[in-house]
Design a protein around this nucleic acid. Structure first.
Lengths: 110, 110
DNA sequence: GAAGCATATGCCGACCGTCGGTATATATCC
DNA sequence: GGATATATACCGACGGTCGGCATATGCTTC
């Protein structure tokens, strides 16, 4: 799973959100580092819907603008949980190796 | 940074390794889940070298087969550390939301 | 009142990185 | 002799993201 996809799923894990709200939530979540492009977001939303990881929650019209809200499905929740566990494992492995490296003073042990 | 790239960097964080050894280390590290394709690996190795994140450590000939060993550069180490921190942060955010969700019994609070 | 920005969805071509296969070559195992 | 493991490398195909554009409305600023 790629980063944008993971972030979109995480945004929807909080609560049902419409597309633009996902962009904003992801931006806040990443400290401004990631601002999803419209093309990326809506393509991913369609794809994720096709995969059954998210579904349309409801549609609202606010100030004559459509808002389509999405929510995580059970499969989406499981998928996000699995991906999160994977991320954590990989981070732990990488951190361990990085730490061992530094204990070496850059490789000059002797 | 994509997963294969991250895993390659992590493999080289342990010690200098040649291409095929990276494939094996990544396979072990992921519990057999990820077996890098030759195309993916060598393309990534070339790219990473171009970006200055890794460099050739040495070359050996074992049983008339060439082994080109790569190692992480200082920039590569920093890059991997930053990526690892990012992974951990995102995992923490996602976990928090998933936990909050479950505390809700799937949204039916009332 | 025009310009610019935020909101909101959506399409499109370009690009990057990975996949999957193939090529090449040697050694080992059955 | 054929399959598998080792080891590097190239290639076309594909998927997903980028970046830009289109569309439309409302709000703010000048």
């Amino acid at each position: 799973m790629n980063e944008p996809t993971f972030l979109i799923l995480t945004a929807l894990a909080g609560e049902a959100r419409h597309g633009y709200a996902v962009i904003e939530d992801v931006e806040g979540m990443t400290g401004g580092r990631v601002r999803l492009r419209a093309g990326t977001l809506y393509a991913a939303l369609d794809r994720l819907r096709g995969e059954g990881l998210i579904e349309v929650d409801r549609e609202e019209v606010v100030q004559s603008r459509l808002r389509r809200y999405y929510r995580l499905t059970g499969a989406g929740e499981q998928s996000l949980a699995a991906e999160t566990a994977r991320l954590r494992e990989q981070a732990t492995i990488a951190e361990g190796r990085l730490r061992a490296r530094r204990a070496d003073f850059g490789g000059a042990t002797a």
